[in-house]
Design a protein around this nucleic acid. Sequence first.
DNA 1: ATCGCGAACGGACTTCGGTCCGGTTCATGG
DNA 2: CCATGAACCGGACCGAAGTCCGTTCGCGAT
Lengths: 211, 211
Amino acid sequence: MLPPVSTPIELPVYQPHPPERADAARNRRRILAAAERLFAERGVAQTSMDAIAAEAGVGKGTLFRRFGDRASLALAVLDEKDRQFQDALLHGPPPLGPGAPPCARLRAFGEAMLDRLEENLDLLLDAQTAAGNYLRSEPYSALWLHVRLLVQQARPDCDADYTTDVLLGALTAPVFAHQRKARGMDLDRLKAGYADLVDRLMTAPIRAGVS
Amino acid sequence: MLPPVSTPIELPVYQPHPPERADAARNRRRILAAAERLFAERGVAQTSMDAIAAEAGVGKGTLFRRFGDRASLALAVLDEKDRQFQDALLHGPPPLGPGAPPCARLRAFGEAMLDRLEENLDLLLDAQTAAGNYLRSEPYSALWLHVRLLVQQARPDCDADYTTDVLLGALTAPVFAHQRKARGMDLDRLKAGYADLVDRLMTAPIRAGVS
DNA sequence: ATCGCGAACGGACTTCGGTCCGGTTCATGG
DNA sequence: CCATGAACCGGACCGAAGTCCGTTCGCGAT
């Protein structure tokens, strides 16, 4: 039990970003602004990369140089939008922020994430549809570490890595979209379901035998 | 508590498939064979739809007419490969098949699914990377109903729909790929984690309060 | 102020998934 | 055996993602 924390291949090395050139910074801002605008006015799925480049007054090559691919751009736009969410987690008031017991924080986290999904579903779908590259992204890693820490505090006797994956897997954009749209489950039901999930995972008897 | 089973928009109507024309059937077989061959010999990701059409000696239009899109083709190929898995679930020996207690069947199901993921990861990644169209597919629905039934039997006092999503969410191709490749978790650890997940979800105290 | 270099730029180009539509083929009724 | 129309075929075509590479330009050094 309790397998070691695996840091298998590459741990997140500090990247000393050689300082960004002035025009590069300008273009990055332009691109993000253009993307945000177009996403808002005609929908994420209806917006091509060419259109964003044009709207930003920038070549396509520049766009891809800075953001790599469509999913990463979506992620970057999203990142701007919920930077506040990011540090509500770290420095905000309880129960989302520090100060509340870990279980309560996990529940609050789920609720906040579900609201976020409801709010930015298109963007999140786009960002997560790169066949798992999303799971390697920096924003996801941050969420993962956050949850993992809480899990470890609340339930030191389980495989925290795995449990974290389960909890975050339940807050995935495609799953959420399906629950919400195809099955018509409403937001409150999902919140209740998640809260119950946390409860059950965190309060279950230790290593229950077969049933 | 216990929200009603939602059958929101369209329930699966029986489609009386007007009988398939001879040439159509022949081409479908050719395409599946070609796809399987190319996937095997040069990898799923490296195989374009054009290449499959060419290998099958068939026009591109035909390919897309029969399978709709890339993900669906992957799913069809997969379906051929694990038809046996499908009915091991329904008619095979316990604990996978009927006869064992639901909890045991859920654990066996997870183990089998993980083996399946290990075996056909590329194919499954491809099939599931259609931004959630996979979740509407027939094979997925079958798995979902299977798990849902077991959940309901093992734990009649919870939101079975939601719990089912959680259990299947933990067996998703992108998550599996990330656990396996990026984090280097081995298969046994995942199996243990899933079994423990089932245990915790099914044996947790009823409606535990806050902690 | 000038120079030189490497990073940044941008748009033509390639690739590939997916659609369209005119021509062909299969199955059925006469 | 033939007429007929529905279903099917195939490849030209399209739009969008992502790459390439010759050109430009910011910026530290002289």
